[in-house]
């Protein structure tokens, strides 16, 4: 795959990852990002994924993958066994997000977290003016049919990191395939954080 066709979030993540690293992708889906990183950054990658049909696709792509939910799969790894642990669009779906982030920081030297921003402006509009739990492009699920367990904003995640003494080394916010620099917690539908332990 050429870098041009790459999703913007994957492009940013790939830019943050040093070549020849060891990478664990938590909630790796069909392995698209890992396959790209293995080919273009020569990383040694592996993933955890809960969806069985995605596992077949990962194996087809030649990726090592474990069939598990993130909460129970993460403790299997020894400390600092990866250069990077990726939690892209998966943290909002885990049962114990605090434990998962701290575990990811134990298992990896650096952790990349990508989260949808539940306080993106269209969501705020729906909540404030319509009195509805938001359903937007970035948050497409109805309340009764959503994989999301945790609802947080970019600001909430920053506060969490501050409280837990986690260093945010890098940050990028995205809206509709564009980087957002102005008031990301209002204008961005998702954000990416590069974390390490202080």
């Amino acid at each position: 795959m050429s870098p041009n066709k790459l999703r913007l979030d994957h492009k940013i993540i790939s830019g943050w990852i040093a070549p020849n690293s060891r990478v664990l992708d938590l909630g790796c889906g069909d392995g698209e990002l890992l396959a790209y990183l293995m080919e273009n950054k020569s990383v040694r990658g592996t993933g955890i994924e809960i969806n069985e049909s995605h596992i077949y696709k990962c194996v087809e792509k030649g990726i090592s993958v474990s069939h598990s939910d993130i909460d129970s799969g993460l403790p299997d790894y020894p400390s600092k066994s990866f250069n990077y642990v990726i939690l892209n669009e998966s943290l909002q779906e885990v049962l114990h997000p605090k434990m998962v982030v701290l575990e990811a920081l134990r298992v990896g030297k650096k952790v990349i977290v990508g989260i949808p921003n539940f306080c993106h402006w269209p969501a705020r509009v729906q909540l404030f003016f319509k009195g509805k739990v938001p359903v937007t492009k970035g948050l497409p699920h109805q309340w009764y049919d959503t994989p999301n367990l945790n609802f947080l904003s970019l600001k909430d995640f920053r506060n969490f990191c501050k409280n837990k003494k986690i260093l945010i080394e890098k940050f990028k916010a995205i809206s509709s395939d564009k980087i957002v620099t102005l008031r990301p917690n209002f204008f961005a539908h998702s954000g990416l954080f590069l974390l390490s332990k202080k």
């Binding site: 596992i55 194996v59 990726i63 598990s68």
Partner: peptide
């Protein structure tokens, strides 16, 4: 296997 840093793929077939 993971503790020993051995490459493993695991699937639970439904």
């Amino acid at each position: 296997l993971k503790i020993n840093d051995i490459d493993v793929s695991y699937i639970e077939v439904d």
